Simulated scan of single mutants.
Amino acid sequence: MRIAIITFPGSADGSDILEALLSVGFTEDQVAFKNEQTTSLEEFSGIFIPGGAVYANAVRPGAVAKVAPVARAIIAFSESGKPIIGIGNGFQILTELALLPGGFLKNKDLRTVNGFVTVSETFNADQPPKTLKLPISHLYGQYHVDNKTLEELKEHNQIILGYAEHNPNGSVCAISGVRNKAGNVIGMMPKPERAMSKLVGSEDGRTLFELFFHHMTKGL
């Protein structure tokens, strides 16, 4: 089992994701960094696309990344049914690749938002939602879908994270994370890799990385 962290020029949080993965049980030889020139990801069992300002968010966030060589490899990987998690700018890239529905606009007040927010986690629709304290940092964080797509997201339980106390960016229905219908592609704007210890304000990000670890190691 190996996990890939896909980075582009401008990616910023890959090292934080690595440290988060190591802290929940992965080993260093199970995690590798791959860049935008990568053409195959077949050897990996799961991939992360971290946040940042990829290609300086030229045109719009994720628009340039979708024509990089690794983009085709990410699409092929998604078709294999293996898990892909995009965080922040990674979420925006996944929408540009049409692996997740919707798109992003500038925040409602046209300013970058930073700091901790409270989100409601609903990965398992059969269990009560959990409340997590996670950080955000983005300018283009207003998630948008049309009414038909919104109803489909609700019908197929694809909304997995929502802003619980206030909507900091104007996202439709306060959505902060979604998955595809197959359930293997996940995007979220909060950054759980920055909330792995009480020393930084919250350790609630550990919950999400532990879920990923258990998913990847079950049956081994």
Rank of each mutant, 00 (worst) to 15 (best):
L18I: 03
G201A: 10
V145P: 02
K148P: 06
V178G: 06
T27N: 08
H214D: 09
E203V: 14
Q92E: 12
F212G: 01
G52A: 01
Q30F: 00
K34V: 15
G46W: 06
D13E: 07
S176T: 08
I136W: 07
H166D: 04
T118D: 09
A63D: 00
L132F: 04
S80V: 06
S171T: 08
L18D: 00
I47H: 00
H166M: 10
G162F: 13
I159H: 05
K82S: 00
M1T: 02
T118K: 14
S137D: 04
L150S: 03
L21C: 02
H166S: 07
D126K: 12
L208R: 04
I17R: 05
D146Y: 10
K66T: 03
R206T: 13
F212Q: 07
K130A: 05
S11Y: 06
N157A: 11
P83D: 01
L208A: 00
Y140L: 03
D29H: 09
Q127P: 00
K106H: 10
A65D: 01
V24E: 00
G90F: 10
T7D: 07
P135M: 06
K148M: 12
G219S: 08
V70W: 00
D126C: 12
I49E: 02
E19F: 13
K106G: 07
A98N: 14
L110G: 04
D13I: 09
R179F: 08
A76Y: 07
I75P: 03
P61W: 03
M216V: 10
S197D: 14
Q142W: 09
L211Y: 09
H214T: 13
M189L: 15
N180T: 05
G201M: 14
V70A: 04
M216D: 04
D204I: 01
T131C: 06
N124Y: 09
S78P: 10
L161N: 05
I75R: 11
S11T: 15
L153E: 06
A71E: 02
L161R: 05
G183R: 09
T39E: 07
H215P: 09
V67Y: 05
N147Q: 15
L134R: 00
N157S: 10
S78R: 09
R60C: 12
E193M: 15
E121N: 09
N167S: 12
F116H: 03
Q37E: 10
L110D: 07
G81T: 14
P69C: 12
I159M: 09
G177T: 12
V178M: 11
D109H: 14
P168H: 10
V54H: 01
T149L: 08
N157Q: 11
E203S: 15
S137H: 05
N124M: 09
L161H: 02
K34E: 05
M196V: 04
E36V: 08
G46Q: 08
E165K: 15
H138E: 06
E121K: 13
K108P: 02
P9H: 03
V117E: 08
Q142E: 06
P9N: 05
E203F: 14
N89R: 07
Y140D: 13
V24K: 01
G25V: 05
L99C: 07
S11M: 10
